[in-house]
Design a protein around this nucleic acid. Sequence first.
DNA 1: CTGTTAGCGCGTTCAA
DNA 2: TTGAACGCGCTAACAG
Lengths: 346, 346
Amino acid sequence: MARSNASSVPTVRDVAALAGVSPMTVSRTMSGGLNVRPEVQERVREAVEKLGYRPNQSARNTRLSKPTGLIGVAVTNLGNPYYGQFALGVEDVAAAHGRHIVVGNSGEDPGREGSLLADFAARQLEGVILVPAGKGGNPLGPRQLGGVPLVLATRTVEGVECDAVLVDDANGAAAGTAALLADGHRRIAFLGDVAGISTAQSRFDGFTHALAGAGISLDPDYLVVVRETDAAAGAVRRLLAGPNPPTAFFSANNRTTVGALRAICEWRDGVPQRPARLPVPALASFDDVELADLLGIPLTVMSHDARALGAAAARLLFDRLDGTTAPAEASPAPRLVLMPVTVRRY
Amino acid sequence: MARSNASSVPTVRDVAALAGVSPMTVSRTMSGGLNVRPEVQERVREAVEKLGYRPNQSARNTRLSKPTGLIGVAVTNLGNPYYGQFALGVEDVAAAHGRHIVVGNSGEDPGREGSLLADFAARQLEGVILVPAGKGGNPLGPRQLGGVPLVLATRTVEGVECDAVLVDDANGAAAGTAALLADGHRRIAFLGDVAGISTAQSRFDGFTHALAGAGISLDPDYLVVVRETDAAAGAVRRLLAGPNPPTAFFSANNRTTVGALRAICEWRDGVPQRPARLPVPALASFDDVELADLLGIPLTVMSHDARALGAAAARLLFDRLDGTTAPAEASPAPRLVLMPVTVRRY
DNA sequence: CTGTTAGCGCGTTCAA
DNA sequence: TTGAACGCGCTAACAG
């Protein structure tokens, strides 16, 4: 027996019954109304209105190869303003292509990342843009996504061959470091998370490369591996209070930059006992931080546009999804987009 | 004819065929393996592995009343760090309840907001948390969401009766204003977007109420309606350069605060021709901004925890979804959670 | 324990 | 222009 109007959500049949037509006519009306008499359409629309009927997307999607219109975005820390901008960039492009985004947060945890991706695939998302957590050497499976196109953003992962949008980390870091060196700095400490994150590693490489070019080798005490803001602040405090304080810091991301800025400001303002005219330490920051330029600290910013990066990643994805690509699915070759880094000084 | 192994995505039947069992056995194995012999499960899992099979969630959901496991979150500006934290709070709770979040960005556009919500409903999302754009008096339909539970966050909308998590805007604003007054400020300008956004309106009310309590009426020149950071900066510049500059500013949100801080810093640092010891204007900011406390500007911050707010909204939602609520759907009564505001001074 | 039957809500296909 | 039949991928409900 058909349980027509059980208080649950209305279906095509309910609408059809109310409008005195077949479900098919309702279906046609809902999808543009081709080959349906206007007056019948009118009746159908009234019934739709009256019942508050909405076509069920899930059911639509069962009809094979009907895309879900959903793009997955997995980031490592939604609370970081950087990824807010990033997601905004993805959303911009996705919206232009009539898609919505599903945002997941891995929290730098490969485990959560894995289940996130598995879930994305199970939901038949059309594609996934991933900022890999990369802590443990998780290969995240070749195409464990089950054929769902994947684009890596910001960071890459060894052994994964797919489209990616990265930042010109090494060159950017080298350029920023060069600026410090040009100012005469020789004792420069590095703050960053080098453990398995490609981005941090590349920035570190660029940093040391520039140092080496100036004939400087990194003092082990000057290499500080941190991720959190507070930890970075603590490290800077210790170094500045130590016997051999650096004259400048290189901060590898915006979280460590905030910590470093805080510590440097404290040192500048709150340490009356500091030697009279000891100069304020300089800071070179990879990634921009709002308001940082107003602090009166010698600042070098190596920045790129997070939103543009997200947009670029999305475009790469839609190129494969909507583009007039190869007939089959044999992706031609992984493409790599490199976002340029701008060095600004304050 | 069953087109078994057409290069497309594998289905239950493909797995069943390979494992030599019925689709049902595969289904059972996939959902916990109740009542399936271990050795058969093993065979099935092998087939699953070999084919890279993943159950199709869309198809699952067609089986009535199977929830999608998706929560919608619609915010007005993903690029605002505030909403990043907010989304993070929602995600925390959603993850704890085994759900994912779909993030949409309305961009303060009621039109986009409407289509976003319609789409959420069509996708059978289990619930929606909305920061309403509220620009045009869009009633967003009574339950135009088609029965999908809705929770408003941060802002409310007239005429919509549903659960909401708001900020104690009026009292917080009054407290912050009182702090300025206690410092002797009498000429205080207001920066904010009052046009139809409940939050801005409440903050404005709290501000003027506190002024009135001190026997002050707001100078019309001191009421600046802005939303964007740059516009706020421009307004502050004009006021400070004008004939009757305020001695303090009240900024109604973090975007205007950034603009105000920028303009005030400029004025302080870049205007040598300013009267010798004219004091730096004070700023009272609704919402915290990273690094603002380090600028050396007399600062009063009225802050609340965006992440906690998001979490509270999510909890309200899951209370209705998973909670042992009323048997039917007749929601008992809209609940309102008010997030406290803390006033800090720098 | 396992397979068969019967749909979920919708859209494609074909016939009327 | 409309409707009936069938199938999408999966899973309750009932056999066996």
